[in-house]
């Protein structure tokens, strides 16, 4: 739990850095980043590690929870929770919320990015003498006229007459994301859901971060207070920044 948990903390930090481009970057920058993340071999390895970590963290957590429940077959008639924190007592519940969130999150974004055949592509609109012209961005930095090409295999641009590939586009994850949170019917619900999931994440980290070091035996009279402080900051700041993004998108013009 400790090792996978800490690895997932690293993943969170990286993921957050990428996501923040939704606020601080252009859509092209974000989509470039998204493409990089889905194609770079090193990132691929990391992403597989992440999937395995999530899986392992979840399965291990579930097993532990069952074992722990079995260790007390008859419960108490009266309990008083004053000797431990809410977060520490509810890691399994919080973890489950996060797991549900991760699944929906992956269906909404990751799956679209990977498998959606009708994924929109990054476009650039320019003023031309003939009026507004919509161009597709290509991955090598040039443009192709949207009217002049045919999109095949989701991202490949083909000259329809010559039947030749003339370039490759960026999947427009940026657009998908903005549309998702700005959806007229459900945008607010999606945003709220996301924020709530981040709240669960905050509590999960509030206990989990320092707990991981304790489980690894990485403690000390100077080290432990530092880890505790860092853990608390991490558990507040990271989910908060994550949560700000959909709120920003939802309320942006």
């Amino acid at each position: 739990m400790a090792l996978t948990g800490l690895f997932l903390c690293l993943f969170l930090a990286g993921h957050l850095a990428g996501n923040l481009q939704l606020i601080f970057g252009t859509s092209l920058q974000f989509n470039e980043y998204a493409l990089f993340m889905t194609t770079n071999p090193a990132v691929k390895i990391l992403s597989y590690l992440t999937y395995i970590s999530i899986l392992f963290h979840a399965i291990d957590g579930i097993l532990l929870t069952f074992q722990n429940k079995a260790a007390r077959p008859i419960g108490y008639a009266k309990t008083d929770g004053s000797s431990s924190s809410f977060a520490s007592r509810n890691m399994a519940v919080l973890g489950t919320i996060i797991l549900v969130f991760i699944v929906t999150h992956m269906v909404n974004f990751w799956a679209k990015m990977h498998f959606d055949e009708s994924m929109p592509l990054q476009e650039t609109v320019v003023e031309s003498p003939m009026g507004e012209l919509t161009l597709y961005n290509t991955v090598n930095g040039s443009y192709v006229n949207k009217e002049a090409v045919e999109v095949r295999n989701v991202t490949d641009f083909y000259d329809p007459q010559l039947n030749l590939k003339v370039g490759q586009g960026y999947k427009d994850l940026h657009k998908i994301t903005f549309e998702f949170f700005k959806d007229e019917k459900f945008g607010l619900i999606f945003t709220l859901g996301y924020v709530l999931a981040m709240l669960a994440m905050a509590f999960h980290l509030w206990h989990g971060f320092q707990s991981a070091f304790q489980s690894l035996g990485a403690t000390g009279s100077k080290l432990t207070p530092a880890i505790k402080l860092f853990g608390k900051l991490f558990s507040v700041i990271v989910p908060l920044l994550f949560a700000i993004i959909p709120i920003y998108i939802h309320f942006s013009k």
Binding site: L64, Q67, N68, A70, A71, R72, S83, S84, S85, S88, R89, M91, H207, Q210, S211, Q214, S215
Partner: peptide
């Protein structure tokens, strides 16, 4: 012996 696992809630130290 069938004891559960430590999840570092810290209740033991308090009690």
């Amino acid at each position: 012996e069938g004891f559960g696992n430590c999840t570092n809630t810290g209740a033991c130290e308090i009690e």
